[in-house]
Write a protein that binds this DNA or RNA. Structure first.
Length: 508
RNA sequence: GCUCCGUUCGUAUAAUGGUAGUACGUCUGCCUUUCUAGCAGAAGAAGUGGGUUCGAUUCCCAUACGGAGUACCA
């Protein structure tokens, strides 16, 4: 096995936008593939026609592309072992399902969904929590095991309710090794006779999954923990086909911040953070925010997800994609579920913003500004602006929301600071400082600072009574970058206008 | 209900059969006109009960709690 080429697949079903847990699964698959110099394959599991959602496949591809998780094979990408969309492989599955029937490892079942529901209801009345279609019950159902050959053949011809079910053997222990959890075992008596081929001719996940993993020469199946329970079925099917099973690694779930249950798409709105990589318009379901639109860099998102369920063992926590590939190791995946911690996600983003040069941020900042109607500033201004704001920002939109005063005059002023810091007897000084600014040879931070500061000390004023008022007069708020640098950026004309506006308003 | 999986500061996690480390968050101080950032510091953790052991957070068992699965969904 270890001599084979490593080939992993990310196999989402196109039933909606790619959830953040799915993104992490994709990441881990990608990292492992690249670490092993293997292939990363995208396979679209669209076997449920009733749940197909238009645009979901594109969304998945766009998300992977945005994140830089490039595919070696997949629908649209190509590859020798396609097609990579299960709906395009439909005929294949029936052949394999029939092989299983022939071998006696599966059988035809003719029960209608209604009959099954009725049987379950009845069982419930008798106190059986869930009716299992298995060795204990299958002889009471309508299938090729319970029916005569003649009846079976007749139904095969006439029924439009023909499915194929796995014939799970009695009293077998199914043991498999999970890379994350070690040895996991199931007694076959606990397993139900799962449908592997549906009445519409499409396979269920279980069949499609193992047929494709085998045919596509997948070496490692890295997927969410929700699949752990059905892995026993899968292992049994590998035995039926006499195929060597891949290695399994079941990833811990990403939990709600409350810790109760796995993170769902509704939690985004509930807790106020994105749970999808990109924005998704769910129609009447509403528009779901994406990490990208919320102002995350892809590097930060990836870095955050990397550490939600995996740790290198050392104290390093910032990784580039290349470093992730280098460091990643399936055996260090955490076993227990990880809660989604939005504060930590934002911290990562802040780190990435601080590290990037103003030039690197230019386009993104421009975008954040222009979506707030700010487009009249030139690059020189914005570059300087970025330098001042960079370390005060967590998400890209903060470049506007935390710094709007650079682009428009204050609409209101921080009353508390005015009350505490403004003394009417200082007004003549503000008037004189106005004149100083007006006549400054060069309106730059250094010049403003030195002239204002020497005025303050010459007049024996208190910095704490003057500077805050200047800030309020110019910015309206106490929060912001260095006062003098900010004044310079605002420009003399603008500052003087604001002062006029402020002191006039204040004194009548 | 049944099956499987899990359980270390609020959160993410590390190491370890012998002092429980790191990061986020929180709080304090320094810096500063302010907000950040940075620096310095503080508080804060092994679900419970047994066993093995000189010694258990670590190994074993039980129990509690949490999670997942239990569909002609993936």
């Amino acid at each position: 096995m270890s001599f084979e080429k490593t080939r992993v697949r990310f196999a989402p079903s196109p039933t909606g936008p790619l959830h953040i847990g799915g993104v992490r699964t994709a990441l881990y698959n990608y990292l492992f593939a690249k670490k092993m110099k293997g292939d990363f394959i995208l396979r679209i599991e669209d076997t449920d026609q009733t749940r197909y959602v238009e645009g979901a496949e594109d969304y998945i591809k766009q998300s992977l592309q945005w994140l830089g998780l490039s595919l070696d094979e997949g629908p649209g990408t190509g590859g020798d072992l396609g097609p990579y969309r299960q709906s395009e492989r439909k005929d294949l599955y029936a052949t394999y399902a029939k092989q299983l029937v022939q071998q006696g490892d599966a059988y035809y079942a003719f029960d209608t969904p209604e009959e099954l529901t009725a049987a379950r209801e009845k069982a419930k009345e008798q106190g059986i929590h869930t009716l299992k279609y298995d060795a204990t019950t299958r002889m009471t159902m309508k299938n090729s095991m319970s029916l005569t050959e003649a009846d079976t053949n007749h139904l095969l011809q006439t029924s439009d309710n023909v499915t194929i079910r796995l014939n799970i053997p009695r009293d077998q222990t199914i043991i498999f090794k999970d890379i994350v959890r070690g040895e996991v075992s199931f007694n076959s008596n606990e397993l139900d006779d799962k449908v592997i081929l549906k009445a519409d001719g499409m396979p269920t996940y279980h069949l499609a999954n193992i047929v494709d993993d085998h045919l596509m020469q997948i070496s490692h199946v890295i997927r969410g923990e929700e699949w752990l329970s059905s892995t026993a079925h899968h292992v049994l099917m590998y035995q039926f086909f006499d195929w060597a099973p891949p290695s399994f690694a079941h990833l811990p779930l990403i939990l709600k911040p409350s810790g109760k249950g796995k993170l769902s798409k509704r939690d985004g709105a509930k807790f106020g953070f994105p749970v999808f990589p990109l924005e998704w318009d769910g129609g009447e379901d509403g528009v779901y925010l994406g990490f990208k639109e919320a102002g995350f860099t892809k590097e930060a998102l990836l870095n955050f997800l990397l550490l939600l369920g995996w740790s290198s063992g050392d104290d390093i926590e910032k990784y580039t994609l290349t470093e992730m590939i280098e460091a990643f190791d399936l055996s260090r995946i955490i076993k227990s579920g990880a809660r989604f911690d939005y504060d930590k996600a934002k911290w990562f983003n802040q780190q990435y913003i601080i590290e990037q040069s103003s030039n690197d941020l230019l386009n993104d900042v421009k975008a954040a500004l222009s979506s707030n109607g700010v487009m009249d500033k030139d690059d020189t201004f914005i570059l300087r602006f970025i330098e001042l704001m960079k370390e005060r920002v967590e998400l890209m939109p903060d470049f506007y929301s935390k710094a709007a005063f650079f682009f428009e005059k204050p609409k209101n002023y921080d009353e508390k600071t005015i009350r505490k810091k403004y003394k009417i007897e200082n007004q003549p000084h503000f008037d004189r400082m106005y004149t100083i600014l007006e006549n400054l040879a060069k309106f730059d931070a250094e010049e403003i600072q030195s002239k204002i500061k020497s005025y303050i000390s010459d007049e024996n004023l208190k910095f704490g009574e003057i500077l805050p008022v200047m800030r309020i007069a110019s910015m309206g708020t106490m929060q912001g970058p260095d006062l003098f640098a900010s004044l310079e950026l605002l420009g003399r004309k603008e500052v003087l206008e604001r002062w006029n506006m402020f002191f006039q308003q204040l004194n009548n």
